[in-house]
Design a protein around this nucleic acid. Structure first.
Length: 612
RNA sequence: CGGGGUGUGGCGCAGUUGGUAGCGCGCGGCGUUUGGGACGCCGAGGCCGGAGGUUCGAGUCCUCUCACCCCGACCA
């Protein structure tokens, strides 16, 4: 419809002219002219299924570490993901704009992040010797826009977003599009009068994200998350469960509790109420690990205290103590100690405060911030180090034997630990973070002076939120969740094309080619996106490429099917094909597509279920 | 940044005790084939990541360096 296939005179036989504004994506493609060839074998250094398949199926090609070109097929997928995001952002009142990729450093100095952010932000100078940075996110820029454009409470609330390239010089990119240095992200920003307005927009985003991911066919969970260096009051992450995920989420199968491990808690053992016993030294040769200590003294791990030493970013020595059966959660410890970052301390640093590696305890140490876990507070008479090689102390007790500076939850939640809300055993799953929502508050509006006047003429900082979705990461994550040993199985909503069409037969056999040409024309006229394998390849090659690329429906004709006046139609996800009369191909395909879309749409309608 | 690994034709790989490079796939041509990655014949394509060194001679040994991958540290 409106797509003119102009092989007659147009210089490129695969070219199609489309009226401006009619569609975001070209509706059809002949594989004989497609840019990008499929690979029989994946490059040896690709390991993740999504990485291997997206390379093999000619969706993308690497340029450098964590830098990829998207080929036509991959770009179509990403654009479809982005279009879904657009629609759902617009549906909650979002206005799309576009902010720059290159920023003057001054705006980052205003927020204080120029110095706070490490080498993952790339800095350079322009020809005038001015400091510049590559955008890794856009809070500063949107806040700058807000302070220029927003003056009055009458202009709020507001929701703006863009879909823009970001550059983060990750210390280690990995896994194809899952974690890259250059990537595209939808980031939206909300501007509100107050916390209540922010709450509303936060919830709107939550629901919009659920619809987005359901429409894209992703299985996900929403978890509570750390607010990190962004400096905000609340944050949730949308996590796609995958064995290749970099995050670990703790989930309660009973009550639905779910948190990123960074912040996950668990039900603690009740305090034993045991009376403190006198501290005494005990000789414990060659017991530098908690396990060897417990074995040597024949006591449970839970009767020991484990010391872990860090150097904080501020230079302070952080001395963490936790019961021997638990592990330190560094994110929690960072917060409890008030440090931006923690690095394991060196042996020299440990000795300098009067402790001994392998035999450490806070008893008698100096110049250290002692942070103890609640478990240490609630478990009297633990065996701890004597700060002397080969010796430990029985019956150490905080308060009596040493003075903790901070008592906090610094314990890492693990699979099997009791759920903090219902007590059922938690499960731990690997997950890929595909989206996040974040209450920024007034951190940036205060720093940059983005204020509005209320009805009384009083000035207030704008209350902000920021919300991100990586479109490339979403695309790759969909592949992680939707593939088999033959290739990708795209959800129809994000498939590069709706239909793979092909003819099967000899090069000189004209009937299958003519029949396929006609179907190509009919399907295209019916508004179907068709990838037409018109190449003179053998059946196996075409079937394998179709399976690899993973369009949801495959239509094929050959002398065999044409003998009965039929075409073969097969769902990529199904094992069996159906045969329908040639005249029924278009309605059958349309019907199958409608059903596929309907499933995703119905899922999306049910959004809101994960909301707390 | 620490640990490990890999760099040889577009992709996957081999290359012996040092003797001036080979296989499969892919690519071009011709022919035969034609429903799940066909077959035959012919052909194109490689300063062996780079630099230095040892040697009569280096893909191979030594030093340095660059790139990429994996594990960890780190992280929107």
């Amino acid at each position: 419809m409106g797509h003119l296939h102009l092989t007659g005179w147009y210089p490129h036989p695969g070219a199609t002219l489309t009226k401006f504004g009619e569609g975001e994506v070209q509706q059809q493609m002949r594989m004989s002219h497609m840019f990008g060839r499929t690979l029989r074998e994946a490059p040896g250094d690709a390991e993740l299924p999504s990485h291997r398949l997206m390379l093999r199926a000619a969706f993308m090609r690497p340029l450098g570490a964590g830098i990829y070109s998207l080929l036509p097929l991959g770009w179509r997928v990403v654009r479809k993901v982005e279009q879904i995001i657009r629609e759902e952002m617009n549906a909650i009142g979002g206005q799309e704009l576009l902010m720059p990729v290159v920023h003057p450093a001054d705006i980052w100095r205003e927020s204080g992040r120029y110095d706070a952010v490490g080498p993952e932000m790339t800095r350079f100078k322009d020809r005038g010797d001015r400091d510049m940075v590559l955008a890794m996110t856009h809070e500063e820029i949107v806040t700058d826009l807000a302070r220029q454009e927003i003056n009055s409470y009458r202009q709020l609330p507001m929701l703006v977003y863009h879909i823009q390239t970001k550059w983060r010089d990750e210390p280690r990119s990995r896994g194809g599009l899952i974690r890259v240095r250059e990537f595209t992200m939808k980031d939206s920003y909300t501007l509100d009068l107050d916390e209540a307005g922010l709450d509303e927009q936060y919830k709107n985003h939550w629901r919009a994200y659920e619809r987005i991911f359901r429409r894209a066919g992703l299985e996900f969970v929403v978890v509570g998350a750390d607010t990190g260096m962004m400096g905000g009051s609340a944050s949730h992450e949308f996590m796609a469960l995958s064995q290749y995920g970099e995050d670990i989420v703790l989930i309660c199968p009973e009550c639905g509790y779910a948190d990123n491990r960074e912040v996950a808690t668990f039900e603690r053992d009740p305090a034993t109420g045991e009376a403190p016993l006198p501290m005494e030294e005990v000789e414990t040769p060659s017991t530098t690990t908690i396990q060897s200590l417990a074995d040597f003294l024949d006591i449970p791990l839970a009767k020991t205290a484990k010391a872990v030493f860090y150097r904080g970013d501020s230079g302070k020595f952080v001395f963490a103590v936790i019961r021997g059966d638990l592990d330190i959660n560094e994110t929690k410890l960072r917060k409890a100690s008030g440090e931006g970052g923690l690095t394991p301390a060196t042996v020299e640093e440990i000795r300098a405060i009067g402790a001994e590696p392998g035999y450490g305890s806070p008893v008698g140490v100096r110049n250290a911030l002692v942070v103890i876990d609640e478990s240490v507070r609630d478990s009297p008479n633990l065996v701890a180090g004597a700060n002397r090689i080969g010796w430990h102390l029985r019956n150490t007790n905080p308060g009596r034997d040493y003075a903790p500076d901070v008592i906090a939850d610094i314990a890492s939640a693990e699979a099997g630990f009791p759920c903090p809300t219902c007590g059922a055993p938690l499960t731990a799953e690997r997950a890929i973070e595909v989206g996040n929502i974040f209450k920024l508050g007034t951190r940036y509006s205060q720093a940059l002076g983005a204020e509005y006047l209320d009805a009384e003429g009083m000035s207030h900082p704008i209350v902000m939120g920021s919300y991100g979705i990586g479109s490339g990461r979403v695309s790759a994550t969909i592949v992680e969740q939707h593939h088999d040993d033959r290739g990708i199985i795209w959800p129809v909503s994000v498939a590069p094309y709706e239909v793979s069409l092909m003819w099967i037969g000899g090069e000189n056999e004209t009937e299958p080619q003519e029949a396929a040409d006609r179907l190509f024309d009919e399907l295209t006229r019916a508004g179907t996106e068709v990838l037409y394998d018109d190449r003179p390849e053998r059946a196996g090659v075409k079937f394998n490429d179709a399976d690899l690329i993973g369009n949801p429906i495959r239509v094929s004709v050959s002398s065999r099917t044409l003998g009965k006046g039929e075409a073969e139609i097969k769902l990529r996800a199904a094992s069996e094909a159906v045969f329908v009369p040639l005249t029924e191909v278009v309605p059958t395909v349309r019907g199958m597509l409608d059903a596929l879309y309907a499933t995703l749409r119905d899922d999306a309608r049910a959004a809101g279920g994960s909301m707390e």
